[in-house]
């Protein structure tokens, strides 16, 4: 029995030792300053196409130039990031605008610091789209009445946007049946006929298109011209305590966004380092726009839509949320 316990303990030690290098955070530490004046800050994000500028900016040295070292924590969904930032687990996070408005309206103390991504603003050529199967009888957003439409999260940005598309096409959004489905499962669900349409983003959208699916509307384009879709944000407490770090993060992120927007090929290449998108799919992916500044009018439009659709406990304060 004793020998057994020793073996077990040794095994556990070995496992721990072999895992010294963690795949998530190479040099994990809280926001402590090191001697050369660089500060390590944690950033919580979802490893998707949208956040390419941050990875690119890190590689290009835009963050280190401003004295920041990013320690990226990946989360599988935006839902994990807002509480993580609010509770101080990560000083900075990435989340979509409606999620931030919902959080702000519920009294979660958060503050946007920098733009995240924006729609391309071009109908049928956006990184998000309402797609239908090849040969579907659904030809426009109005035809979605009475149909089953897959969206990634109910009562969030994509529901707002799809409802707006239906409304703009002259349909009644209340007649659309929304079902919740992860983006990556949408191509199969559409193909198998479990849903009539899906509001998908890249790279799932590229997969759908490669199977002959048709994009019938670009919901984020219908919300506003050049809709700001997601933002980088921090907690109000962190902003008060470390205004200098927030400012550095803002400047470095703005630079990274501008660079990625101007160099889409480099952005595409960096995506292969943190996702597993196959090269054949990546070539077909429509990249979002990465303007340095958020478009306030579009955020107000999303706030108004969310309000109409009843997502908020009370009216969110867009001015208080924005930097």
């Amino acid at each position: 029995m004793r020998r057994l316990l020793v073996t077990l303990a040794a095994g556990a030690l070995m496992v721990t030792a072999s895992a010294c290098g963690s795949s998530g955070d190479p040099e994990a530490s809280d926001s402590g300053s090191s001697s050369d004046g660089t500060t390590t800050v944690k950033l919580g994000l979802i490893p998707i196409v949208d956040v390419a500028p941050v990875y690119l900016g890190q590689k290009k040295g835009f963050y280190s130039k401003h004295g920041l070292k990013l320690d990226i924590s990946t989360a599988s969904g935006g839902a994990a990031i807002v509480p993580g930032v609010a509770s101080g687990q990560f000083p900075f996070g990435f989340s979509n605008v409606t999620s931030l408005l919902i959080a702000q309206a519920s009294g979660v103390p958060i503050k946007a610091v920098s733009n995240g991504i924006a729609s391309t603003g071009v109908q049928s050529k956006d990184f998000a789209g309402i797609a239908v199967k090849k040969g579907s009888s659904v030809k426009s957003a109005k035809d979605l009445e009475g149909k089953k439409v897959a969206i990634n999260t109910l009562k969030n940005i994509n529901e707002s946007a799809v409802r707006e598309s239906v409304r703009k096409a002259g349909g009644d959004p209340d007649k659309v049946k929304f079902v919740e489905l992860a983006f990556d499962q949408m191509p199969a669900a559409l193909d198998g006929g479990q849903v009539d349409a899906a509001c998908a983003v890249e790279p799932a959208l590229a997969t759908i298109k490669s199977q002959g699916g048709q994009v019938i509307a670009s919901p984020l384009v219908d919300v506003a011209a050049n809709t700001t879709v997601a933002l980088y944000f921090t907690s109000t407490r962190y902003q008060q305590q470390h205004p200098d770090l927030v400012k550095k993060f803002q400047e470095a992120t703005a630079e990274s966004l501008a660079y990625a927007d101007a160099h889409p090929d480099e952005a595409r290449r960096i995506i292969t380092t943190y996702t597993k998108i196959p090269a054949s799919v990546l070539a077909q992916v429509t990249l979002p726009k990465w303007p340095a500044e958020p478009n306030k009018a579009s955020i107000e439009a999303l706030a108004k839509l969310g309000e109409e659709d009843g997502f908020f406990k009370k009216t969110p304060d867009v001015d208080a949320l924005l930097p």
Partner: peptide, 24 residues
Amino acid sequence: ELVMGAPGLGARIAVAQNSQAVPE
């Protein structure tokens, strides 16, 4: 790891899912 994104095999599965990398 899959749901929260903490580093590990689960997070790797999530990345593969989000990337449409089905065989992986």
